[in-house]
C-alpha cells in the first residue's frame, strides 16, 4: 500500500503507467457505449407507457451516475491531496471537475427533454431535479474557487476543502430536498415507477453505465496526462519527452 502510494507521488511514474492503461479504457468505453446505444436505442422493447421516449434513460441514467460519482471522486482526491500531498490527486481533481459539471448538465438536460413528452413540461420542481441542480451549483462553485486563486497551491487546497465540505453536505441536501418535495407537493407522478424493468431494457442500461465509467476513466487519464505535462513542463523528463517528439 505504502509502496504504491509512494510510486503515485511521482508524476513520471503515473505518466508511464497511464499510457499503458489508457488504450484499454478507451477501447472498453467505445465497445460498451456503441453496443449499449445500438441495443438500447434500436433493439430494446419500447416502454408500454412512455413509448420510445423512455430510451433517453440510456444517456440520462449513466450521466446522472457519473455526475454523483465524480463529485465523490473530487472529495476523495482532495482528501488524498491534503493528507499525503500527492500532486497527481490534485491534477486529477482539476480535470475531473469540469467533466462532472458537464455530466450533471447532461443529466439535467436529458431529463428536461424526457420531461416534455412524459410530464408535458421542461422543468418540474421534482426532488431529484432539484438536487441535481444544486449539485451543478456545487460543481460550479468548486471550479470557480479554483480559478479565483493566483497561487496554484492555494487554489488546489481551497478546492479540496470545498469538495470535502460539499460531499458531507450532499446527503443532507438530498434528504432535505426529498423531505421538502413530499411536504409541498403530493407525488402525482413518480419517476421511480420504472423500478421494475425487464431484463432486455435493463441490460443495455448496465452496459451504458459501464461504458460511461470507462469513458470517464479514459478521459481523466488522458487529461491528467496533459495536466502533468503542463505543470511539470520545467522538469527534465518532460523536456526530454518533448525533444524526442520533435
Amino acid at each position: 500500500m505504502w509502496a504504491f502510494l509512494n510510486k503515485l507521488r511521482s508524476p513520471k511514474w503515473f505518466y508511464t503507467i497511464s499510457a499503458r492503461l489508457q488504450p484499454w479504457f478507451w477501447a472498453a468505453a467505445l465497445i460498451l457505449i456503441v453496443t449499449g446505444s445500438v441495443w438500447g436505442l434500436a433493439f430494446a422493447p419500447a416502454d408500454y407507457q412512455q413509448g420510445n421516449s423512455f430510451r433517453i434513460i440510456y444517456v440520462h441514467v449513466p450521466a446522472a451516475f457519473l455526475a454523483q460519482s465524480i463529485f465523490v471522486s473530487l472529495a476523495v482526491t482532495g482528501l488524498v491531496f491534503m493528507v499525503w500531498k500527492i500532486k497527481i490527486a490534485d491534477m486529477a481533481a482539476t480535470v475531473m471537475a469540469p467533466l462532472g459539471a458537464a455530466m450533471t448538465f447532461v443529466a439535467l438536460f436529458s431529463g428536461a427533454v424526457w420531461g416534455v413528452p412524459t410530464w408535458g413540461t421542461w422543468w418540474m420542481w421534482d426532488a431529484r431535479l432539484t438536487s441535481m441542480l444544486i449539485l451543478l451549483f456545487l460543481y460550479l462553485g468548486v471550479i470557480a474557487l479554483r480559478g479565483a486563486f493566483a497561487s496554484r497551491d492555494s487554489a488546489s487546497r481551497a478546492a479540496s476543502v470545498l469538495a470535502m465540505v460539499g460531499v458531507i453536505n450532499i446527503p443532507i441536501i438530498k434528504y432535505s430536498v426529498d423531505w421538502w418535495y413530499t411536504l409541498h407537493q403530493p407525488a402525482t407522478f413518480t419517476v421511480t415507477g420504472r423500478a421494475a424493468m425487464p431484463m432486455e431494457m435493463w441490460l443495455p442500461l448496465l452496459i451504458m453505465v459501464l461504458g460511461f465509467y470507462c469513458f470517464f476513466i479514459a478521459l481523466t487519464l488522458m487529461r491528467t496526462r496533459s495536466e502533468i505535462l503542463r505543470r511539470e513542463s520545467s522538469k527534465r523528463w518532460v523536456r526530454e519527452l518533448a525533444e524526442e517528439a520533435n
Binding site: 451549483f137 470557480a144 460539499g166 432535505s176 421538502w180
Partner: peptide, 12 residues
C-alpha cells in the same frame, strides 16, 4: 456561489 447551495437544507 460557494455558500448558497450549502444553505438549502437550513432554508427547507
Amino acid at each position: 456561489l460557494l455558500v448558497l447551495p450549502l444553505y438549502i437544507p437550513v432554508l427547507i
